[in-house]
Design a protein around this nucleic acid. Structure first.
Lengths: 232, 232
DNA sequence: GAGTGGTCTAGACCACTGT
DNA sequence: CAGTGGTCTAGACCACTCC
């Protein structure tokens, strides 16, 4: 029986192979952990580890007592990396540039105030900035920061360090909501990014929280041509 | 010492708390697994499970011998769900609709042929279709399918079932590349989606593979207003 | 070489849920 | 109630990498 199968990765591969070759088809019940452990000659915990990984990928559905089935409509999961912008640009061997375009305390638009769960009429810090890659406008940052949650922010001028980067090391968060969308460049956006008005921009909007208090709301509008890549 | 700490989720929470409260700061070395196991009064494997989850989220960096550190520039991971379009629409309690708009065997544009790693001049199946939510155009599917990898596809007319759905249950894949971007609606796209030419569309492009053979290349262009959401 | 995380084992008990 | 996955333990050995 001398299998080359021993590690949980080997078992994961074998399980994937059986799904990919349709030996186990969508909807099928697969053997339980104890049986697979016997078949592969390993401990049940090892099988469990492998099947958990496959379940995390969305390919199988597991329920106590009901057993493990191959998903009929697999909701495949892709993981998006959300790096600090400077690191992302430098990671591509481009020269990073940063320009602060505005810093003021102001009352945010009602939709943003609502998204940040602010008291009506509250004023918070508003920043606008441009990030450049090899001196070319890359992404426009439009950010609101809740000074109640992050009071130190009032002392930072953000001339030399972006809020994007400062917050990462100084304001840990517990949770973040992310929205990806496309939108047409307005006049001001177009000017700053040096593109035509109405161009299609890839926009990432993010709100982060420390427990139940909002830290920041940010919209990152990427210049045309930007592509966010990932794999399944 | 009667902690309420025992499960790996409890330990994960406590570790996150220590990072969030800056008790452990970016760059800090944290105690090793054996020490934490002693502190929490549990087995090292339990601590390992908790720390692996935190490392997967990108908040700590772990290396043998070097130990575990709080990330200086955490590359936070967000997971995107990639569901079948029908399931996604029905999941929002909307009526799903589907219309095939074209089916032909043709020679793909060179960029697509390259992305699919096809032989020069190879002809493959080209499909165009529209998915509707509550009778409103929702997403335009532009798809090329490699008949060499999935020969059964030649017999399917795709009048009543979308390639999106058929492939999921009939053509398992081992790997997929995904690109998210924004683009301006062309004239044909605009007509089909019933929107203005030049509108900003959110576009998901995906190539899937069975081992080293491409299965399909697809571009999904979502009508304006679509937002893809996730959390960190 | 030595210290750290990565993994496996054998066994146990628990939690959930279908029947 | 019984069968399944989920988790914990104590111990062991291995793999990697810093010194």
């Amino acid at each position: 029986m001398s299998d080359g199968i021993g590690s949980w990765q080997d078992i994961q591969k074998e399980v994937l192979r059986r799904i990919q070759t349709r030996m186990w088809r969508p909807g099928d019940l697969i053997p339980n952990e104890a049986e697979l452990a016997r078949e592969f000659g390993c401990a049940r915990a090892t099988v469990n580890r492998a099947l958990q990984a496959v379940a995390d990928a969305g390919l199988i559905d597991r329920r106590r007592k009901a057993g493990t089935r191959v998903s009929r409509h697999p909701v495949r999961k892709a993981t998006l990396d959300i790096p600090v912008i400077r690191i992302e640009i430098e990671g591509r061997c481009l020269k990073y540039g940063y320009r602060l375009a505005g810093r003021e305390v102001a009352k945010p638009p009602s939709d943003i105030a609502a998204a940040m769960n602010l008291k009506q009429g509250a004023s918070i810090l508003h920043l606008r900035a441009l990030h450049l890659a090899d001196n070319i406008p890359h992404v426009l940052e439009n950010r609101w920061i809740n000074c109640d949650t992050v009071p130190e922010v009032e002392k930072i001028d953000f001339q030399d360090i972006s809020a994007n980067e400062w917050l990462v090391t100084h304001a840990p968060f517990t949770r973040g909501d992310i929205t990806l969308s496309a939108s047409e460049a307005g006049l001001k956006d177009a000017e700053m990014l040096k593109i035509d008005k109405g161009s299609a921009l890839f926009v990432v909007t993010r709100t982060t929280w420390l427990a139940e208090r909002s830290i920041t709301w940010v919209s990152l509008a990427y210049a045309p041509g930007y592509r966010m890549k990932t794999t399944i």
